[in-house]
Computed example of a mutant assay.
Amino acid sequence: MRVLRILGLVVISAVTGVLSGTAAEAAPTAAAIVAAEALPSGAVTGRAGPAPAPMAAPALTAPVVSRVAGTPCRSTARACIELSSNRAWLISNGIVQYGPVPITHGREGWRTPPGTFAVTFKSLNHRSSLFNDAPMPYSVFFNGGIAFHQGSLTQESHGCIHLSRTAARTFFTALNGGDVVQVVT
């Protein structure tokens, strides 16, 4: 009987912890186990006895994610790209740190896809393995072979985000592996 009460309390604690979103609440404490012993017979096990008082379910709240003022991107982004206006920004803690700066992006057949990505690696003096060993200085890769890098601001790319030399250096210095890059149309 005691084991069933404790097991029932563990299940209730786990469900409560899942609903509230905290792992700490999912594990029963010693005080909770002692409190289970004080419950009327059958309160947790479903056997005859008085039913426990109904509990209100904890409110589920999603984290607040707002847009960064002056950009089309969310506050969780570290870098923001707006394809329709050919602009990019660096963001820190929901505040624009740098930009907007002009960019060019993927041409027909090589469009830069919108979405949310993470920086995977950086390469100071990268050269393209697909396009005739073309130089890609200050490369910051965030979507497979797509990267921010120094490039032409008059010609569209093969999917990469071209930046001026100054902007490419700034993005290269500021961004690190795992940083969120948001690309919007």
Rank of each mutant, 00 (worst) to 15 (best):
L4D: 12
L4N: 08
R5I: 15
I6F: 13
G8T: 11
G8F: 06
G8D: 06
L9Q: 15
S13W: 14
A14V: 09
G17C: 11
G17V: 10
V18M: 15
A24P: 09
A24H: 12
A31P: 02
I33G: 06
V34C: 02
A35I: 04
V44A: 04
R47Y: 02
A56I: 00
A57M: 02
P58E: 01
P72N: 04
S75Q: 15
A77H: 12
R78N: 08
R78C: 05
A79C: 02
A79K: 02
I81C: 01
I81M: 01
S85H: 01
S85A: 08
A88I: 02
L90I: 04
I91Q: 01
I91Y: 01
N93M: 08
G94T: 14
V101K: 13
T104W: 02
H105F: 05
T116Y: 10
A118D: 03
N125F: 07
N125E: 07
H126T: 00
H126A: 15
R127W: 09
S129Q: 15
N132Y: 09
N132I: 00
N132W: 03
D133Q: 14
D133L: 06
A134D: 13
A134N: 05
M136D: 13
Y138G: 10
F141Y: 07
N143E: 11
Q150L: 12
T154F: 14
Q155I: 12
G159D: 02
I161S: 06
H162W: 11
S164I: 09
S164C: 14
R165Y: 12
A167G: 09
A168V: 08
A168G: 15
N176P: 03
V184C: 03
T185K: 08
